[in-house]
């Protein structure tokens, strides 16, 4: 059986926001080390990998591997019934076909209980190779969100060029073109806003902006985002969750004919 408790329902709500535009239904794979999700979008262009480590919950208990097949639209409906600050407990039995969700107000004078019907999901699990990337850029997640939003006015594609001087995002479309360059910064007052670049060799990649806009739904989960890139391979876009795990997205590049 599974029993896992989070001090704030807001976290699960935010996680759901971060994946529900990409994926309609997926398995939450629970075991004694935590809860993991790996799911691709329907076009097999983007993949989300989510990890919530057991020690990020208090308490956490799961005796054996338990795949919970969840329709995210349905889960979203139930999570709308939780207050952001509610204590959230999820429970599932080994042979059950429902997920129990309990929302408890902080002073414990209101307890609401919901059951979500589970489903059997035959998901395709991809093996993601351990990759040494040529360029790893850590930057403000809010800045990344703004750049994706701004350049989506220009085009539905974005070109990312990384050199040791900085990272340049550019778009070219019918109205004209635009670009935003962030220089590697060592002297900003706020660490959250700094851009740092680890570079083995310069990279230049083209991506569909639509998917980046889905990924940036994870912005409330972390003040930082890390973009890991090598030429002609999928980009890894990672949001780390404090003391809990991560949300990672992989996006296949657009490649020249």
């Amino acid at each position: 059986m599974l029993e896992a408790r989070l001090p704030q329902a807001k976290l699960l709500k935010s996680l759901l926001e971060a994946i529900k535009e990409l994926v309609v239904e997926c398995n939450f794979d629970c075991n004694d080390s935590g809860i993991a999700v790996q799911a691709m979008d329907s076009s097999h262009v983007a993949l989300v990998a989510l990890l919530l480590r057991a020690d990020g919950f208090d308490p956490y208990r799961c005796d054996r591997n338990l795949p919970l097949g969840i329709n995210l639209t349905s889960l979203n409906k139930i999570l709308k019934c939780a207050g952001n600050e509610d204590i959230l407990t999820i429970k599932a039995s080994d042979d059950g076909d429902v997920l129990n969700l309990v929302f408890e107000s902080k002073d414990s004078d209101r307890i609401s209980e919901y059951e979500l019907k589970l489903m059997d999901i035959d998901s395709e699990h991809l093996g993601i190779p351990d990759t040494q990337y040529d360029a790893v850029v850590s930057m403000s997640s809010g800045e990344f969100q703004r750049i994706c939003r701004d350049l989506s006015q220009i085009s539905d594609s974005i070109v990312i060029d990384v050199t040791k001087e900085g990272i340049k995002f550019s778009a070219s479309g019918e109205v004209g073109n635009g670009s935003v360059t962030l220089k590697q910064s060592g002297s900003v007052d706020r660490e959250d806003e700094a851009t740092t670049i680890e570079l083995q060799q310069a990279v230049s990649l083209t991506f569909s902006l639509k998917y980046f806009q889905y990924f940036t739904k994870a912005t409330p989960l972390s003040s930082r985002v890390v973009l890991s890139m090598s030429n002609d391979v999928p980009i890894l876009v990672e949001y780390k969750l404090d003391n809990l795990g991560y949300v990672r997205y992989y996006l296949a590049p657009k490649i020249g004919d």
């Binding site: 983007a46 993949l47 395709e124 991809l126 093996g127 594609s157 999928p234 657009k254 004919d257």
Partner: peptide, 14 residues
């Protein structure tokens, strides 16, 4: 011009 690739050409099936 560029063409959208898919993840299947980079990541193997488990």
């Amino acid at each position: 011009s560029t063409k959208q690739s898919t993840l299947g050409s980079f990541f193997g099936k488990n």
